[in-house]
């Protein structure tokens, strides 16, 4: 009898029961989370859309082909637009963000602390608050109806995302900077040749973050496009597709577009993943 009671109170029993509960909860949550994606993928292969069927009645690949061949909308153009915007933004934003982060991490200048706090506070306001002013500013430089205007908007505030990268830079010992400076490097060389190679994980993180934001952006993109189809990105385009003619005819094609859009970002993630995991700081200093 007592042995039995002891078993129910043992540490092992408690561990197993609590783990079981946690896993059940997690499985339920992940099913809820995954269903829309699975649904999207299934519907992208449906011959016709019927809301009552989770699994399509008849399968086809035509939706993907139609995406690029249907002349009623230029999906290819939208995709290229998005890719161009995202790539340029990712490059510029990464450079600016990392430079800002480096400056805040390494240089000591007056009101540095105040600046950092100020940026944090400013970052708490939603960006669309400044939409109208932004529009007038872009109009003044002649970029109000152009995808480059969109790039300017995305890149302009990139320094504000310095926080995570600064935290990473702070962990790189300052004596590396100093050693490089004695070796003959200036701040610029230190940044490009010493700090950046050591900061691969954070570079990857920054690239991913700055790529995904414009890739899925709807609000600014639709605002700048001003209804001109050739300026749409995929998010705006797909939304247009759905509302076209008040019809559900396009829904499978919309799903196909959705799947296609996520492929791009997945490819980028898998390509960059190996740097993400790789830690390279070992051996710099003692230990």
């Amino acid at each position: 009898m007592s042995a039995k009671v002891e078993r129910y109170h043992s540490k092992k029993f408690k561990e197993i029961s609590s783990k079981t509960l946690i896993y059940i909860l997690l499985v339920i949550i992940s099913i809820i989370w995954l269903i829309p994606f699975v649904y999207l993928v299934f519907q992208s292969f449906a011959q016709s859309y019927s809301p009552s069927n989770f699994i399509p009645a008849a399968w086809t690949f035509d939706n993907y082909i139609n995406l690029f061949t249907d002349i009623s909308y230029p999906f290819g153009r939208w995709y290229l637009n998005t890719l161009l915007i995202a790539i340029i933004t990712a490059i510029l934003q990464t450079v600016f963000t990392l430079m800002t982060a480096y400056a805040f991490s390494r240089l000591r200048f007056r009101s540095r602390q105040a600046y950092m706090k100020f940026i944090l506070v400013i970052g708490m306001f939603p960006s669309f608050l400044g939409m109208i002013v932004t529009y007038f500013l872009l109009q003044m430089i002649g970029l109000s109806a152009s995808i480059f205007g969109l790039i300017v908007i995305y890149v302009a505030g990139s320094g504000m995302g310095y926080y995570v990268a600064k935290g990473f830079f702070d962990t790189i010992p300052k004596s590396l900077d100093e050693a490089a400076m004695i070796d003959g490097a200036n701040k610029n060389t230190v940044f490009w040749k010493v700090i950046l190679p050591l900061a691969k994980p954070i570079v990857v993180y920054t690239v991913l973050m700055s790529f995904t934001a414009p890739w899925g952006d709807y609000m600014m993109a639709s605002y700048i496009a001003q209804g001109k189809q050739e300026l749409f990105n995929v998010a705006v385009g797909l939304q247009q597709m759905m509302t076209k003619g008040n019809d559900i005819k396009y829904f499978p094609q919309f799903c196909a577009g959705g799947v296609f859009v996520s492929i791009g970002i997945m490819a980028l993630f898998f390509w960059l993943q190996k740097y993400y995991v790789e830690g390279v700081t070992g051996g710099a200093v003692k230990g």
């Binding site: 004596s175 400076m181 004695i182 070796d183 050591l198 700081t281 070992g282 051996g283 710099a284 003692k286």
Partner: peptide
């Protein structure tokens, strides 16, 4: 005068080697 123009060399307590470079590259960097 900037450290690099003073013609000095320094050895740090924590070595401060560039971890992404080989020993050869570490020494050749300067």
């Amino acid at each position: 005068v900037e450290p690099k123009d003073r013609d000095i060399a320094m050895v740090f307590q924590n070595y401060a080697l560039y971890p992404h470079m080989t020993v050869y590259e570490n020494m050749a960097f300067g």
